[in-house]
Design a protein around this nucleic acid. Structure first.
Length: 495
RNA sequence: GCCUGGUUGGUCUAGUGGCCUAGGACGCUGCCCUCUCACGGCGGUAACAGGGGUUCGACUCCCCUACCAGGUACCA
């Protein structure tokens, strides 16, 4: 039988990474088996409908590369793919269950139930619907229905015996029917509950493997009572563990955890996010860690899925993203980096073709996520002239304000006289000068770099920075540095 | 509370009774490279939740305890 999986989000907000991972695994399993990956929107709770949420699902799945074969936007043989549009399909099935005695009409109001629930819980008990309406006579039910009284349809769970099923990850799960509540199948507004719609949809849409969150594990035995009642074949269940923020809280948008979109906006590469996510709760069984979607498709297996929840490690994601960036082709990296360079105020510099190679060399190994770029190159756009001359002192380079002053005094005319301004000429002049004077390269280059950047840590060295800044700006900054040093020396004399 | 699961270093994990004096990766860290910071190279650090069994032998099987999560909605 052809494998068919589905991703069935409810359009209630953003796509957090846990959801995305569920979609990824469902996609992988379908694709690995040359099957069909289907998208279904579960909007049975109209009170929670969020405008635009459906679009967000599409957008996320697309940028993640998880293309669906059937869905609301593209259709398919099992449509419609939006639950609210399938509304009329559910009631007949529910009625069928009523006829079989596996379900019944219930006229208890929400308010009544809440009252009873509160009363039981106040005494420390667990409320369970008492099958009150199950004892209603057929005639009374007919009469109240005819009178237009609001009703729900509840599942009639046996009071004895066990309900069970086999999960691909957790094995055999069984629970006493006595523990189970008569869940509502059809709500008073005529919509099915998630529980019921799922059973009907998964069956009528030919789903063979249900991959979904752990939160459904303990209620799945109850669903299977329904499958049994209809005589339907059950799908293979694969309950996925939750992705946690820390040991006790799961990842959630509400608590400020990053969504997929947030991560992309921060400069994470979708491929890196997907790669990382695949490894949160799944292991290929060997020691590989880098996978393209195609490679994941090959390697994916249900056996590699973990039984315990996993904490989302931003650190490792960051590392993996950096690793992806370093492996990029230089030109591709530059294309990606450009918008961030423009944002950082060095757009003009980045436009100069002569600078592309320099930017790639100094930035690519230093970029972990693209949003890092701004803070790394901002000094190129504008020098913070108030920097402390203490920066000129560096023990390892054997520099201090005095040495630096001498260096700048010598370097300024040297560079003024340079016939050409590029990395090669700068390198030859500067390194040549140091060699000629018998100085350590560091002793010469340290003060130059400090004067050009006003900071001790910079991407690249003095030569690359000078090349980027250009002759005029480089000399302006060097003169300013010298001035600061002179000023300080003066102060010391006077004082 | 009750029910259902889970528990290998700080984190993600490998491990399905002897291959484990527990492997890999992130992190942290030492050294090297070096005009700074990165990158890169070579090292280091750190774990089987606790207690009982079963067995010649338990990380692996069983039981109990602890802790964590999920469920216990006319939410999904």
């Amino acid at each position: 039988m052809k494998v068919r999986t589905r991703f069935a989000p409810s359009p209630t907000g953003f796509m957090h990474v846990g959801n995305l991972r569920t979609a990824l695994y469902a996609w992988l399993w379908a694709k690995k088996n040359d099957g069909v990956f289907m998208l279904r929107i579960e909007d049975t709770d109209q009170a929670r409908f969020v405008e635009g949420a459906e679009e967000m699902v599409y957008k996320t799945l697309r940028t993640a590369g998880l293309v669906w074969d059937e869905g609301p936007d593209i259709g398919g043989d099992y449509g419609p793919y939006v639950q609210s549009e399938r509304k009329d399909m559910y009631l007949p099935y529910a009625k069928q269950l009523v006829e079989m005695g596996k379900a019944y009409y219930c006229f208890c109001t929400k308010e009544e139930l809440e009252e009873r629930r509160a009363a039981v819980e106040a005494e420390g008990g667990t409320f369970k619907y008492d099958k009150h309406c199950l004892s209603l006579s057929k005639e009374e039910v007919e009469r109240r229905l005819a009178a237009g009284e609001p009703y729900v349809i509840r599942q009639n769970v046996p009071t004895e015996g066990v309900a069970d099923f086999d999960d691909a990850i957790f094995g055999h799960i069984s629970v006493d029917c006595a523990e189970l509540d008569d869940m509502i199948l059809i709500k008073a507004d005529g919509m099915p509950t998630y529980n019921f719609a799922n059973v009907i949809d998964d069956h009528t849409m030919g789903i063979t493997h249900v991959l979904r969150g752990m939160e459904y594990l303990s209620s799945t035995p109850k669903y299977n009572l329904l499958y049994d009642a209809f005589g339907w074949e059950k799908p293979t269940y694969v309950h996925l563990t939750t992705i946690m923020r820390d040991a006790t809280h799961k990842l959630s948008k509400r608590d400020g955890d990053a969504t997929f979109e947030d991560l992309v906006n921060l400069g994470y590469l979708p491929e890196a996010i997907i790669n990382y996510l695949a490894l949160v709760g799944w292991s290929p069984g060997d020691e590989r860690e880098f996978f393209t979607l195609d490679e994941l498709k090959e390697a994916f297996s249900l056996e590699g899925l973990s039984k315990s929840p996993a904490i989302f490690d931003h650190n490792k994601l960051r590392w993996m993203n950096a690793e992806y960036i370093r492996r990029m082709d230089g030109a591709a990296y530059f294309e990606k980096a450009k918008p961030w360079l423009i944002k950082a105020g060095v757009g003009a510099m980045a436009e100069d073709p002569a600078n592309e190679d320099i930017f790639i060399r100094i930035l690519q190994p230093r970029t972990e996520i693209f949003s890092d770029i701004a803070n790394v190159v901002d000094f190129l756009a504008e020098l913070d002239e108030g920097y402390d001359t203490e920066l000129f002192t560096n023990k390892k380079s054997k520099t201090n304000p005095e040495v630096s002053k001498a260096v700048l005094e010598a370097v300024i005319p040297l560079l003024e006289a340079l016939p050409e301004w590029n990395e090669t000429s700068l390198h030859d002049a500067l390194i040549g000068f140091a060699a000629e004077k018998g100085m350590k390269n560091g002793t010469l280059l340290w003060p130059v770099r400090i004067a050009m950047s006003g900071r001790t840590v910079t991407p690249g060295g003095a030569i690359e920075i000078a090349a980027l800044l250009g002759r005029e700006e480089t000399l302006r900054r060097l003169r300013l540095g010298l001035e600061k040093l002179n000023h300080e020396a003066g102060d010391i004399c006077v004082g």
